[in-house]
């Protein structure tokens, strides 16, 4: 094509686009599955029938349509949003700490959000929409605390130490959250299922409450993608390329807090999505965060919503808490990352 076979042109770019398209298609498939399958009495064939009738304009107010529209549709939207948000948050944290183990759940960011929400509920806050800013604030505090710990001399160089600092913070925050549950029975009922992570019983309003935070985070992420990629080469190199590493780090912390706070407010702390999705994305597209961030969107959505669909089916008619399933997927990946030799340099 008119003198463009340059060496510098991104050769693998086409492969990445193909992966992105495939993953988006997979996301759609999982969305359809999420609308069709449930733990309740409405089976996939009934659902499919209702869905096809709805698409051709014949809505009905029978039980099946109610289940799909009011229960499964918001749940599906939440699964996609939460999964994408957690995956992007993980990719951001890993890029800014140059640590492939940095993950919101492992670092205490989700723990901060959970603790903040538990306090808010214990103090009498009922409205689910209030949870979002509270959780974002808690996530921000957790994020700042663990990154400050990681910048203590020596600790930042060692990926495992950052995770240890995060584990200590998470442990402390979950212990404090349990303490609140012990003392306050009403809070306990409201929080118990939420704390293990679940999408069940969310309303369409809850989804809308997430959108502003996610939109702001998206704008921030688009704005810092390029300097964040340069930060992978080291702080001094990034400065030499005309970036301001401190400003970038600050904006990353802000975006992570918005993303994790939103996700945690609605779904509870869900671990390992922020670890697994960027890990898969890097495997497909290489180390540049500008491409892995894009891939993280569908990968996080597929993983999270897929886990949610499975969680409805394995112990029918009950549901498995989502956090249990993501941990089952995530723990082996964690071991794989720790064992791989790419650990010290991301």
């Amino acid at each position: 094509m008119n003198g463009r076979p340059r060496i510098a042109a991104g050769a693998p770019q086409r492969r990445v686009r193909l992966w992105f398209a495939l993953l988006c298609a997979a996301t759609l498939l999982v969305c359809v599955a999420s609308l069709l399958f449930g733990a309740g009495a409405i089976g996939p064939l009934d659902s499919l029938d209702t869905l096809i009738r709805a698409l051709s304009g014949h809505t009905s107010d029978d039980n099946a349509w109610f289940t799909i529209e009011s229960l499964r549709a918001p749940r599906t939207a939440i699964g996609v949003l939460v999964g994408a948000a957690l995956a992007v948050a993980g990719a951001l944290l890993q890029a800014v700490t140059r640590n492939p183990l940095a993950e919101p759940g492992l670092l205490g960011v989700s723990g901060g959000a959970t603790f903040a929400v538990a306090i808010a509920i214990a103090l009498g806050a009922d409205a689910a929409s209030l949870r979002v800013p509270v959780a974002q604030f808690g996530a921000l505090a957790g994020c700042v605390a663990v990154l400050a710990a990681s910048r203590v001399r020596g600790a930042g160089d060692d990926p495992v130490r950052l995770v240890l600092a995060g584990a200590v913070l998470s442990g402390l925050l979950y212990a404090l959250t349990s303490l609140i549950l012990l003392f306050d029975e009403r809070t306990a009922d409201e929080i118990r299922f939420w704390v293990v992570g679940s999408f069940a019983g969310r309303r369409p309003d809850d989804v809308i409450a997430l959108l502003p935070g996610l939109a702001v985070a998206a704008v921030v992420v688009v704005g810092i993608a390029r300097p964040l990629a340069a930060l992978a080469l080291g702080e001094h190199v990034a400065s030499g390329l005309g970036h301001r590493p401190r400003l970038v780090r600050l904006l990353v912390v802000l975006a992570v807090a918005l993303l994790v706070g939103s996700a945690t407010a609605i779904a509870g702390p869900i671990a390992f999505i922020g670890l697994v999705a960027p890990f898969v994305a890097r495997g497909l597209a290489g180390p540049d965060v500008r491409t892995t961030l894009w891939l993280c969107l569908p990968i996080g959505a597929v993983l999270t919503l897929g886990a949610d669909v499975v969680s409805r089916l394995v112990v029918r008619p009950s549901e498995l808490p989502l956090g249990v399933l993501t941990a089952l997927i995530g723990a082996p990946v964690l071991v794989a990352v720790v064992r791989s030799r790419r650990l010290p340099t991301l």
Binding site: L233, G234, V237
Partner: peptide, 12 residues
């Protein structure tokens, strides 16, 4: 500027 002891992410 090219600082001392630079490292790049694996696979770059």
């Amino acid at each position: 500027l090219l600082p001392q002891n630079v490292t790049a992410p694996e696979g770059l």
